[in-house]
Design a protein around this nucleic acid. Structure first.
Length: 255
DNA sequence: ATGCCTCAGCTCCTGAGA
């Protein structure tokens, strides 16, 4: 079984790339972030024609998430229960016996800003809810655009970017706290090339110069960890014409 | 460089992303 996450920065613009990627990489579940469209615009028929079901939770202009799956998605939950939020960021469902949480974490803009405060509160609420969700569903995957790096290995210029957004100790504290719930960074369960990133700035030839960050993550629960077989970042779509700034991250689980 | 790209929208500029 394969699961993947991809921030596609507008599904309107990149639907053809997503369909092509699914044709080339027939994963069982694909979590999408930043679809940037209202629910009435979601191209469910296009996914159905490709053999995929879909759940979606859209929003005008910003945010918006979806879960694309071969099998049916049940017990669907939108956003974080108990946390009042006007942004569409989280979509959770059970697929093939696995609780899949697809999430678009807040960006946070800059430490000290209102958006950063919102990010901290959102992270707190996510963790509180995940604690109970993990009790109900031990076989759980949390994947998406976290907008947080774990450590310097996830940052192309750890000195220059020290304490800037995605790299602050406050954000990393929350990321480690998620790990402390009994989750594992699937990417680091396996040997990886140094300077591996999942996002590169559109500006200044960021991708060509490999000036990137690893901010898209797949976390697996303790119960699923023994089944993890591989976790990879697929840089191929970043080489497309009009690419997303993010690359897909793929987790392979033993059947 | 409060910049560089890219996207959406009350679209020919601005806000936001990361």
């Amino acid at each position: 079984m394969k699961l993947a996450t991809w921030n596609i920065n507008s599904l309107t613009v990149r639907l053809p790339q997503v369909l092509q990627w699914l044709a080339d990489n027939p994963v069982d579940v694909l979590a999408l972030q930043e679809i940037k469209m209202t629910d009435d615009k979601f191209p469910a028929a296009d996914f159905a024609a490709a053999g995929y079901q879909a759940q979606w939770f859209g929003q005008k202009t910003y945010n918006g998430v979806a879960l694309i799956s071969r099998g049916p998605a049940t017990d669907v939950v939108r956003n974080i229960p108990g946390f009042d939020d006007d942004m569409s960021r989280v979509l959770t469902a059970t697929v093939d016996g696995i609780r899949v949480v697809g999430a678009y974490f807040p960006n946070g803009q800059a430490p000290g800003s209102d958006k950063f405060d919102y990010k901290m509160h959102w992270l707190q609420a996510l963790r509180a809810w995940l604690r109970t969700e993990l009790e109900r569903h031990p076989r759980l995957v949390l994947m998406g655009d976290y907008n947080i790096t774990f450590d310097d290995d996830d940052v192309w210029d750890p000195v220059g970017l020290k304490d800037t957004i995605h790299c602050t100790e406050e954000e990393r504290y929350h990321l480690r706290a998620l790990i402390a719930l009994g989750l594992h960074d699937a990417y680091r369960l396996f040997p990886q090339a140094p300077k591996s990133y999942s996002w590169w700035d559109y500006r200044d030839f960021g991708f060509r110069r490999n000036r990137g960050l690893r901010i898209d993550h797949v976390l697996v629960s303790e119960a699923l960890r023994p089944a993890a077989r591989a976790c990879t970042i697929d840089k191929a779509p970043r080489k497309n014409e009009r690419p997303s700034d993010h690359a897909p991250v793929v987790l392979e689980l033993a059947d």
